[in-house]
């Protein structure tokens, strides 16, 4: 599903150059649930952004479903994101001006799905994440857990093959956190590949495999299943 080889990424400011990824390689198989762990600044989020086609690597190869996407331009990357990838962020990143329903509907609008089909799908997903009763509320009117459930619903609405989650429970209490992890597990069981960055050993145990990173490289792997 995902195959990266020798990926490098450096950030430059006027005076300082920081190496975020240093020749990192990783394989993720279809249907896998991978947790990426490591101390702050080790490059976890950079890796996730590159996997999500939000950012470009400076070197190395990135194969998505066997196709090299490392040199795709922004428009083709946007198309791929829409088609294959769903994001779940630590701080939810819902659009405050849109209701729950409209936030979840947005990817379908970009995808050009017809109104009737949109309604069916949004309602189905909202029901699945148990937030249907809040469909007309605005994000600021919801608790953190509820917001993250909406974010998950938005991530899966286009039925992506991959979900990339960046510390999905980082801003939640343990009960809400568990509910979100449960949701991700269910998605994975229905066939969605999940790559999750986390600080939490507890959350990582929901995954099949834990990849540990340090200074832009993978340093250890442990298979849980």
């Amino acid at each position: 599903m995902i195959s990266i080889h020798n990926i490098a990424k450096r950030y430059r400011t006027d005076e300082v150059e920081t190496t975020a990824l240093n020749g990192l390689s990783l394989e993720v198989k279809p249907g896998e649930f991978v947790a990426i762990m490591g101390p702050s600044g080790c490059g976890k989020s950079t890796l996730l952004n590159i996997l999500g086609l939000l950012d470009e690597a400076d070197g190395g190869q990135f194969l998505l479903d066997g196709i090299d996407v490392s040199r795709y331009n922004e428009n083709r990357r946007a198309e791929l994101r829409m088609e294959k990838i769903g994001f779940v962020f630590q701080n939810f990143n819902l659009i405050d001006e849109l209701t729950v329903y409209e936030n979840v509907e947005l990817p379908l609008l970009y995808n050009g799905i017809k109104a009737g089909e949109r309604k069916k799908r949004v309602e189905y997903v909202l029901d699945k994440v148990q937030i249907m009763h809040r469909r007309n509320h605005y994000p600021t009117q919801l608790s953190g857990g509820q917001q993250q459930r909406v974010a998950v619903a938005r991530a899966v609405i286009n039925q992506p093959a991959i979900i990339l989650a960046d510390e999905p429970t980082g801003n939640l209490d343990s009960q809400n956190g568990n509910e979100v992890m449960q949701l991700l597990t269910e998605l994975n069981e229905s066939g969605t590949t999940i790559v999750m960055v986390t600080h939490s050993e507890h959350d990582a145990r929901f995954s099949h495999r834990i990849v540990r990173m340090l200074d832009g490289q993978t340093v250890a792997e442990s298979v849980l299943v």
């Binding site: 999500g52 939000l54 922004e74 428009n75 946007a78 198309e79 994101r81 829409m82 088609e83 769903g86 994001f87 990143n93 819902l94 659009i95 001006e97 947005l106 990817p107 970009y110 995808n111 938005r154 286009n158």
Partner: peptide
């Protein structure tokens, strides 16, 4: 900015 980021992440093109 956040809205722009979210929209891009879920597949919005620049022209959108």
């Amino acid at each position: 900015a956040k809205e722009v980021g979210v929209r891009k992440a879920i597949g919005s093109k620049r022209k959108h």
